[in-house]
Computed example of a mutant assay.
Amino acid sequence: MLADGYSKVAPGKLVAAVTCLEMLAPAPTASAPDPEGLSLALVREPDLDWYRDLYRRIGTDWLWSSRLSLADAALAEILHDPAVEVRAVMAGGRAEGLMELDFRAEGQCELAFFGLTKAMIGRGAGRWLMNHTIENAWSKPISRFWVHTCSLDSPQALDFYVRSGFVPYERMVEVFDDPRLAGILPADAAPQVPILRG
C-alpha cells in the first residue's frame, strides 16, 4: 500500500489512478434506440492489423498502448482464444467502436476494452453499445462482470460505468513507461498529458 503524501515518479513514466468496478447481477439497461446506420458485428479471430488500427483510433487520445506493445503471437493468443469475444461497431462498412469481453476466468467476464472513435461521439452510440455489452456478458453463466478505468481515460468514463450499473470496489495506482517515448504512440498523442523526459 502507498503511504499518504507525494511519491516521486521516474522520468519517462506515467501514473494513472485506476478504479475497478463490478456488476454482480445484470443491471437494467437504459433505453437507447439503435443509432441510424450502426450495427454490431462479432469478429471471430480478428486480423491483428485490423484490431490494432481500431484500437489506435479509439485509444490514442487516452494513451491506450498495452495491446500495441504486444508481439503478434501474444496478441493473437488473447484475441483468438474462444473465450474472448470481440465485437465491432460498424458504420458505413468501417469499424468505429470496440467491445471486448474476456470470459477466460470461470464464472466471470472482464470488459477488457470498450470505446468509440471520435466519429461516433454524440450519436447515442455509447449507451447503445453498453446495453449490448451488458446483455452479451450476462448471456453466459457468470456471476461477476467487471471493468477498470483510469485517470488517463475520458473524463466521462468512470461516471458512465457507474450509471451503467457497475459499482466501484477497489482503487489502485499504475506506473508504466510513457508509450510516446517508446515510439508506440506518436509524440503528439494525448497533449493533455505532458511528456516528462528527464
Rank of each mutant, 00 (worst) to 15 (best):
G126N: 06
T60W: 12
G115T: 07
M99T: 09
T117P: 01
W62K: 06
K140I: 01
D49H: 13
G92W: 00
W128R: 07
R144N: 09
G165Y: 02
R94Y: 00
S151V: 08
R52C: 12
F103N: 09
E85N: 04
R144I: 05
P141E: 12
V162S: 00
A105S: 13
G198I: 11
G107Q: 12
H80W: 15
E110R: 15
R57T: 02
F114V: 06
D153N: 15
A76S: 14
K13E: 13
A83C: 12
D53C: 11
Y161S: 07
I58A: 01
R197F: 04
D188K: 06
T29C: 13
M172N: 14
P141I: 00
V193C: 11
C109V: 15
M1V: 13
K140P: 01
S139W: 02
L68A: 09
C109G: 07
F114H: 05
W50C: 07
F145V: 00
P191V: 09
P11D: 11
I195Y: 02
Y169M: 00
P28V: 14
L98E: 01
S139T: 07
L129G: 00
Y55Q: 10
S164I: 03
S143K: 11
M130N: 03
P46A: 04
M120P: 01
A119H: 04
L40M: 09
L2I: 13
R52P: 11
S31L: 10
E85A: 12
L152G: 03
G165S: 00
D159Q: 15
V9L: 15
A30C: 09
I134C: 04
R163L: 04
A73P: 04
L111C: 07
A30L: 13
V162A: 05
P179Q: 07
A83W: 00
M172D: 11
A105P: 01
A30G: 14
V175R: 12
V43D: 02
M172V: 03
S154D: 15
C150I: 03
F103T: 06
R56K: 14
R57K: 13
D153F: 10
P26F: 01
G124M: 10
F176I: 01
S143E: 13
A16E: 12
T149M: 02
A10T: 12
E77T: 12
P191M: 06
S65V: 02
V43N: 00
R56M: 12
Y6C: 08
W64V: 03
A74P: 01
G115P: 01
S69G: 05
V43S: 00
V18T: 11
R94N: 05
I142H: 01
D47W: 10
Y161G: 05
G12C: 10
E96V: 15
A76P: 02
F113L: 10
V43L: 07
